[in-house]
């Protein structure tokens, strides 16, 4: 693919040279483009801020505050995406009382673009999740949960492509193994597929077939399992795959003060990020693009 891209680009350059002064400015803009990715994970129904008496997170979190922060970032850069890496449900009475309705409605009001599914999102069973889908004005992605024989069939796509300022962004989802974590009667006929294999398929489809400029994985696999290295995690996923630019994780409630930079299977950098839980933080990653021009061979500069 790299070779094809190179040939395409040299052809384009030759053409440009041969047609001389032909003006195609509107298409060959040289301005730097900026895509802002905002993300949450494991919010666990934490809609209100923690109270002042809370032993650990006093006065932190809160959806209404997150909303104003997201709005101010969107005002500064309209080319912003808002994503969630799962476990939206379970943790406060809002979920027990309303089954996730308010969580989805608020995420819709905040204009979330895409989310993936965490194990706790099955806590009212797959039927309970399905019942709340009408309240979600955003899309769910999961490439390794096969929902074919469940009510969720057609409501979850393996990936979603969004275009912002001409930049094509591919987002796919990965979920954690459900057996042993969630009751079978809850997830029913949902089939868990190998996340590494699916990630390899997805990144190839998004990068090569769909021609995405940016590939993001929304993962609920967990950040890293040091005591069980054979267990798939965001870190092992980053190392075993290629063509993923950013892995936004969840499940392990890992508070990363800044994204981790890992090296993928072909020696390129991939960012892994996770912002703990309960809506205490918002993750932010800005990608700057130089259109139609290859950057230096050592790749992008990463400032974290």
């Amino acid at each position: 693919m790299k070779r094809r891209q190179f040939i395409q680009k040299s052809t384009a350059a030759t053409v440009l040279a041969s047609v001389g002064g032909l003006s195609l400015q509107s298409f060959s803009s040289t301005k730097t483009k900026k895509i802002t990715i905002l993300h949450t994970n494991d919010v666990h129904s934490h809609i209100d801020p923690f109270g002042p008496e809370d032993g650990r997170n006093a006065n932190k979190g809160g959806v209404a505050r997150r909303a104003s922060l997201v709005e101010s970032i969107r005002a500064e850069n309209p080319n912003t995406l808002l994503l969630d890496a799962g476990d939206i449900f379970q943790g406060t009475p809002y979920f027990n009382y309303y089954g996730g309705e308010l969580e989805f409605k608020l995420m819709s009001m905040l204009k979330y673009d895409v989310a993936t599914i965490g194990n706790h999102d099955f806590d009212n069973g797959i039927d309970g999740l399905y019942a709340q889908i009408p309240h979600a004005d955003f899309e769910f992605v999961s490439a390794n949960y096969d929902f074919t024989n469940t009510v969720m069939d057609t409501h979850v796509k393996p990936y979603k492509i969004l275009v912002k300022d001409g930049i094509k962004i591919g987002i796919f989802g990965l979920g954690v193994e459900l057996e042993g974590l969630v009751g079978k009667d809850m997830y029913k006929e949902t089939v868990y597929l190998d996340p590494i294999e699916k990630a390899q398929d997805m990144s190839r489809i998004l990068r090569e077939d769909e021609g995405c400029d940016l590939v993001i994985c929304l993962s609920h696999l967990g950040y890293e399992y040091k005591n069980a290295p054979q267990k798939v995690s965001d870190i092992s996923l980053a190392k075993a795959t290629k063509d993923i630019d950013l892995i936004i994780g969840g499940h392990t409630h890992t508070f990363l003060p800044k994204p981790t930079v890992e090296t993928n299977s072909v020696g390129k950098s991939v960012l892994v990020n996770q912002v703990g839980c309960f809506g205490l933080y918002l993750g932010r990653v800005d990608f700057y693009f130089e259109p139609g021009r290859k950057v230096k061979s050592d790749g992008a500069s990463i400032i974290v």
């Binding site: 909303a67 094509k168 990653v285 130089e290 992008a300 400032i303």
Partner: peptide, 27 residues
């Protein structure tokens, strides 16, 4: 071709606090 793939030149990542210094969105 000129509309095709752009390359990432720079990436910045940070964590933003959700706390009482932020305005509460009234709506």
């Amino acid at each position: 071709f000129s509309c095709a793939s752009s390359e990432i030149s720079k990436i910045e990542g940070k964590r933003l606090d959700i706390d009482a210094t932020l305005k509460t969105d009234q709506a």
